[in-house]
């Protein structure tokens, strides 16, 4: 659209004219490209720069402070029983809409024959969903998930109960570590990021009615995190 191009050029031109007082355009472009090529090191809070085991504890503490619940199991094969126990504790049917993450493909689901696992996107009728986290960030108890063909985004937002599996080895101190992992593991030209990266810190909440915090307004009312030591 040529009109659009003109508008963009016009706005960028106005910005350029204002900035030309202090610098020239080529220098600005070079500085910007250099910063993107090698971003300056961030100031990373000390809080989560602790041992891996302490990071797991810190992650759980912060997640629970924002009303998530957490569980910890030893083996991947303990997952079906842990899921069934959680669903039953919440009086939910033993049925789950699940991500097709390769990690979950390695689980022996026959161990819990009463638990039904469906794959695919979440729909309105789904009461509970199961997803796999790319990372858990100890600094604030934040989960990182990202969209992929096997990980539909609707699983994270539509059902009332969101259960997330987090391998212990994916718990890190800070967000920066996760950005680098994403760049290395998934990064590809032209865009270095998956379609959506979700940072999730606790369940859905609102304070819009008289500033009283209530959970589960549009997204999940419950966020349950299962940390797996050996996965």
């Amino acid at each position: 659209m040529s009109v659009q191009n003109n508008t963009g050029a016009d706005i960028l031109g106005k910005i350029g004219a204002a900035l030309d007082k202090d610098s020239d355009k080529a220098a600005r472009a070079a500085t910007a490209a250099a910063r993107i090529e090698s971003p300056p090191k961030n100031l990373i809070p000390n809080r989560a720069q602790v041992s891996p085991e302490d990071q797991v504890q810190l992650f759980r503490d912060w997640a629970e402070e924002v009303s998530a619940t957490t569980d910890r199991i030893e083996h991947l094969d303990d997952l079906p029983a842990a899921l069934a126990a959680y669903l039953s504790s919440q009086n939910l049917p033993s049925e789950i809409k699940s991500s097709d993450d390769p990690l979950l493909g390695r689980v022996d689901w026959t161990r819990q024959p009463t638990l039904t696992r469906h794959l695919g996107v979440a729909i309105e009728a789904d009461q509970a969903s199961l997803a796999v986290a790319f990372a858990g960030i100890a600094e604030t108890g934040t989960l990182v998930l990202h969209a992929a063909p096997e990980n539909p985004t609707t699983l994270n937002f539509l059902p009332e109960t969101h259960i997330v599996v987090l391998p212990r080895s994916r718990v890190t101190g800070d967000y920066e570590t996760t950005w680098n992992r994403l760049r290395n593991e998934i990064g590809s030209e032209p865009s270095s990021l998956p379609r959506v990266v979700n940072w999730i810190t606790g369940p859905s909440r609102t304070g819009d009615i008289e500033q009283k915090i209530q959970l589960g307004i549009h997204g999940p009312r419950r966020l349950h995190i299962i940390i797996i030591d050996e996965a």
Binding site: V121, T142, A147, R195, V196, N198, I200, T201, P203, G219
Partner: peptide, 24 residues
């Protein structure tokens, strides 16, 4: 803003759904 350590949902969106994506 609210005194939260981090808001519940921080979402980074890049482009439309990819060819094999099931939603978005």
């Amino acid at each position: 803003a609210t005194g939260q350590e981090m808001s519940s949902y921080t979402t980074f969106s890049t482009g439309p759904r990819r060819a094999a994506d099931l939603d978005g």
